[in-house]
């Protein structure tokens, strides 16, 4: 069996290694290729996240359509003021994250660290408020399960579905925040150590995408969970 490799298809050139960049992995040709690969990979990952949340959103839409009365009265149990403030906090953290990426791309280490810490703090406030809300629901027996009660709810039997979705969706969202929290701690450590330069700050940039995505999920959760038909009720 002679090995007759066809040569028509290709011609060879000498693989040129880019100038030694400590952050360039061996299997990439150059830094651009590596950076773009990371970016596409992150976007594709966010696509999976979108579909992951999509299943819960679908369940929400189906049951909201089926049991409007239960959803209205159960949703009215949430505190809009707290929800709106928390949304504001999360949007602020998105801004600080965007600025962190901005200063990373300019190579300004101290501002990068500052805005990463700001993002961390704002995320912490959001989670704290969320914890307070959960506690409040716990006190009022609004946790789905055996002891579930929905005082003064119309169609109270189906109100539990609303709260199942409420906890499912905000819980999944919060778990994403907690994971983000962990990654942020690592990034702050690395940024402070001076790992990132204006030429290479891919982890910061990729984490920024993740953080904004989590923000977007909340942007939808806020009106869907807190703002169903508040007509005739004071906003604050």
């Amino acid at each position: 069996m002679s090995s007759h490799a066809a040569s028509s298809h290709t011609s060879a050139v000498v693989g040129h290694e880019a100038a030694h960049d400590p952050n360039l992995k061996h299997h990439f040709e150059n830094a651009d290729q590596q950076k773009e690969s990371a970016s596409i990979g992150m976007w594709v990952f966010l696509l999976t996240e979108l579909m992951f949340f999509g299943g819960l959103f679908l369940a929400y839409f189906v049951y909201r359509q089926w049991y409007p009365a239960a959803f209205i009265s159960a949703s009215n149990k949430t505190d809009v003021l707290i929800g709106a403030i928390n949304t504001t906090v999360l949007i602020c953290s998105s801004l600080t994250m965007a600025l962190a990426v901005h200063y990373a791309s300019l190579g300004k280490k101290q501002l990068l660290v500052f805005f990463l810490i700001a993002t961390l703090l704002l995320g912490g406030i959001f989670l704290g408020v969320k914890g307070y809300e959960y506690h409040d629901k716990w006190v009022h027996h609004e946790i789905p399960g055996e002891h579930f009660e929905c005082e003064g709810c119309q169609d109270a039997g189906h109100a539990q579905l609303f709260f199942s979705l409420y906890f499912g969706m905000t819980g999944l969202h919060a778990s994403h925040m907690i994971i983000g929290f962990g990654i942020l701690l690592v990034l702050i450590f690395q940024a402070n150590r001076g790992d990132f330069t204006a030429k290479w700050y891919t982890p910061v940039e990729m984490f920024g995408l993740y953080w904004h995505f989590v923000d977007i999920v909340w942007i939808f959760l806020f009106p869907l969970l807190y703002l169903i038909d508040r007509v005739g009720r004071p906003l604050l």
């Binding site: 809009v80 949007i91 703002l227 508040r230 007509v231 005739g232 009720r233 004071p234 906003l235």
Partner: peptide, 16 residues
């Protein structure tokens, strides 16, 4: 950022 904040409160208000 400003638009996002304004829209957050607009959507809260409009639900009433």
């Amino acid at each position: 950022f400003t638009t996002l904040i304004i829209m957050t409160w607009v959507t809260a208000w409009i639900s009433t």
